[in-house]
């Protein structure tokens, strides 16, 4: 997995390329955790995400929980495979997907 980070003031955009699974999720989690402070907006660009496992969902969920307290979070460019996962798991109702 590859994470392209683009911090613009208090707005963070994370471009995730590859697979977000048990082995790669900790890296993303660490990245989010480090950038979280003072952040008003976070955008996940999932265009390059091949698939996401529950470990990845956990990271997104905890990010959402944190952002609910301090700003906004949204997911953009969600592909079909990943979208299906969100739908199955009910994450579409929880996350903001554009």
């Amino acid at each position: 997995m590859e994470i392209n980070k683009n911090l613009n003031g208090d707005a963070l955009e994370l471009k995730i390329i590859g697979r977000l699974d048990t082995t790669t999720a900790p890296a993303l989690e660490a990245e989010v955790k480090n950038s979280l402070e003072g952040l008003k907006s976070i955008v996940f660009d999932l265009e390059g995400l091949e698939y996401i496992s529950s470990a990845g969902l956990r990271v997104l969920l905890s990010a959402q929980k944190s952002m609910n307290k301090q700003g906004t979070m949204k997911l953009v460019n969600v592909n079909e495979v990943v979208m299906e996962v969100f739908e199955i798991t009910g994450f579409v109702d929880v996350l903001t997907i554009e």
Partner: peptide, 15 residues
């Protein structure tokens, strides 16, 4: 339960 709100959701069993 896939209908819970963000705060109530946990990741267990989801996989």
């Amino acid at each position: 339960d896939t209908t819970l709100s963000v705060e109530e959701r946990s990741i267990g069993g989801l996989g």
